[in-house]
Amino acid sequence: MSGKVVLTYFNGRGKMESIRWLLTVAGVEFEEVNLSNREEFLKLLNDGALMYEQVPLVEMDGMKLVQTKAILNYIAGKYNLYGKDLKERVMIDMYAEGVRDLMELMMMFPFIPPANKSTKLNEIESKATSRYLPVFEKALAGSQYLVGNQLSCADVQLFELTLMLEEKFPTILTNFPVVKAFQERMRNLPSIAKFLQPGSKRKPPPDDNYVKNVCEVFNLKL
């Protein structure tokens, strides 16, 4: 295997987007293989590339990495984005897993039947404003980062989450000024500013074509 980092997933955000973000902040160049049909997925299965028969798949450092959390933790640990000791790491994990809980609700939204979308949006907004954003608002009060005195993977994932939330709820951060200020600081990091520009490897919000692609590859019927 070459030294290149290769990401295998759909041509869309999903669980791979946080990995793209973290690699970008770490300054790691990567290539992508986009699954376009079920045959490509079945070939990965037949080749034994997917430990649990799931994507995302990240090939780096001579390994085929699966499971999103494991991948993110490996990248964070390798590139000094995972705290200075075990106590910081467990706090980073706690914040990051909270972020992912809310992200996963949003990732599933495009696959919800149209009749249920309004109810699901209300649920996401309610959980975001009552359960998750208050935690991050408190954690960032008087601090530049969620944990300790340096940037971590949890900060990167929280920034990604704030952007996702604002796509659905443009004013959602109005009552969370500390989180909003954090978001603006993160925007000014050179790697992030570049990734936010048109033409980067950042993926757009999921649309009907993305949903169709995922359903075809996994042989799903909505």
Rank of each mutant, 00 (worst) to 15 (best):
S2T: 12
S2M: 14
V5D: 04
V6N: 10
T8C: 09
Y9R: 09
F10E: 01
N11R: 13
R13Y: 05
M16T: 07
E17F: 03
R20Y: 03
T24F: 03
T24M: 04
G27H: 05
G27S: 04
V28Q: 11
V33Y: 04
L35R: 01
S36L: 06
R38C: 10
L42A: 09
K43Y: 01
L44P: 03
L45W: 06
D47M: 12
D47T: 11
D47H: 11
G48T: 06
P56C: 14
P56H: 15
P56L: 12
M63A: 13
V66F: 03
Q67L: 10
T68K: 13
T68A: 01
I71V: 09
L72A: 03
L72G: 00
I75H: 04
I75F: 04
K78F: 01
K84S: 09
K84I: 03
L86V: 12
K87I: 13
V90A: 15
I92E: 10
M94Y: 04
M94A: 14
M94P: 05
A96S: 13
G98W: 09
V99W: 01
D101F: 09
E104I: 07
L105F: 04
M107Q: 15
M107E: 12
P110T: 02
P113C: 09
A115K: 15
K117H: 10
L121W: 05
N122K: 15
E123F: 06
S126G: 02
K127T: 15
T129Y: 00
T129V: 03
R131K: 14
Y132W: 01
L133Q: 05
V135P: 03
F136N: 00
E137Y: 09
K138F: 04
A141E: 12
A141S: 11
G142E: 05
S143W: 04
S143E: 09
Q144V: 08
L146K: 11
L146A: 08
G148C: 03
S152R: 12
V156L: 09
Q157R: 05
L158E: 15
L158D: 10
F159P: 14
E160M: 12
T162S: 02
L165Y: 08
L165G: 05
L165S: 08
K168M: 14
N175T: 12
N175L: 04
P177L: 15
V179D: 00
K180I: 03
K180D: 08
K180T: 07
A181Y: 00
F182A: 06
R187K: 11
A193F: 02
A193Q: 13
K194M: 07
K194Y: 01
F195R: 14
L196P: 01
Q197S: 10
K203N: 01
P204W: 14
D208K: 15
D208R: 10
N209T: 12
Y210M: 05
Y210E: 00
N219R: 13
L220E: 11
